[in-house]
């Protein structure tokens, strides 16, 4: 089953003279769980933000079901509604409760009626274990709880691909666990995901493919067993060695 959802061709991004991404090529098939690893500043987050058009790419193409969404006159909001994103800093709407956070996209973007939206929102909040807290405002929740609500908010849009931008980097170890276990379940259910992470054990266990980025290019990619156990490139070896030796 190789139903291609996203295809990225020769993607590049520079901020002024600083080239953050250079000639990135990869594709995402339905059901893929792709973990993107690499040192800070290697362009992982920028890649993810380009895929969601939060950053405008400087060059290249991003094909979503064969249609280039970097072109002019493409309805970017409509595209984003099909590609969910979970942020490192949660970005829950501070003026809404957990339930409202999950409903607003369905009622205002997808134009679903309130009843259906509430039912769906409750379903996904339950899935991430947050159903007791649906009436809490973000400021009343802990980091792990916020991130789980944020995941439910993204899921409630029933996206074709879900992007995670270092979802656990702002959390303490205990909360990391609760968020990762939610993500593990999603992976098992076959949700298509691209995950930027520093959690190597998680990447090894969950992903169907691992992408290692170094200085703005994809240095090496492959199945997790291969990339973690038997890396081919020198940069990959050095990066992994630093992780293993703490």
């Amino acid at each position: 089953m190789s139903d291609t959802i996203l295809e990225i061709r020769h993607l590049s991004k520079s901020f002024g003279a600083n080239a953050v991404l250079r000639d990135i090529d990869f594709s995402v098939n339905k059901g893929d769980v792709i973990c993107v690893i690499g040192a800070s500043g290697s362009g992982k987050s920028t890649l993810l933000r380009c895929i969601n058009m939060l950053e405008t790419p400087s060059g290249g193409e991003i094909l979503f079901h064969g249609k280039d969404i970097t072109k002019e006159r493409v309805n970017v909001p409509a595209y984003r509604a099909k590609v969910g994103m979970v942020f490192q800093s949660f970005n829950l709407f501070a003026n809404m409760t957990a339930l409202q956070n999950c409903m607003i996209g369905m009622t205002k973007v997808q134009k679903k009626d309130r009843k259906t939206a509430e039912k769906t929102a409750r379903y996904y909040l339950d899935k991430v274990g947050m159903s007791p807290y649906i009436h809490a405002k973000p400021r009343q929740l802990s980091g792990g709880q916020k991130q789980r609500v944020a995941i439910a908010r993204a899921l409630a849009m029933e996206p074709e691909v879900l992007l995670f931008d270092e979802p656990t980097s702002a959390l303490d170890p205990q909360m990391v666990g609760e968020v990762l276990s939610v993500m593990r379940n999603l992976a098992q259910e076959g949700l298509t995901m691209i995950i930027v992470t520093h959690e190597m054990a998680f990447a090894r266990d969950v992903s169907s493919r691992v992408v290692f980025m170094h200085n703005g290019v994809i240095c090496e990619e492959g199945p997790p067993q291969e990339l973690f156990m038997n890396p081919k490139k020198q940069e990959t070896k050095e990066f992994l060695a630093r992780f293993l030796n703490g």
């Binding site: 969601n52 939060l54 909001p77 409509a78 595209y79 984003r80 509604a81 099909k82 969910g84 994103m85 942020f87 800093s89 949660f90 970005n91 829950l92 709407f93 501070a94 003026n95 607003i104 996209g105 205002k108 973007v109 997808q110 944020a150 908010r153 993204a154 849009m157």
Partner: peptide, 28 residues
């Protein structure tokens, strides 16, 4: 800025982002 990005990420237009997310908080 994260509030705006969160809203954009679920597909809101600039107008919707302002109306439902940014302005209510700005008003407060």
């Amino acid at each position: 800025e994260g509030q705006t990005e969160g809203a954009k990420a679920i597909g809101m237009t600039h107008f919707q982002t302002m109306l439902y997310v940014v302005l209510p908080q700005a008003l407060r």
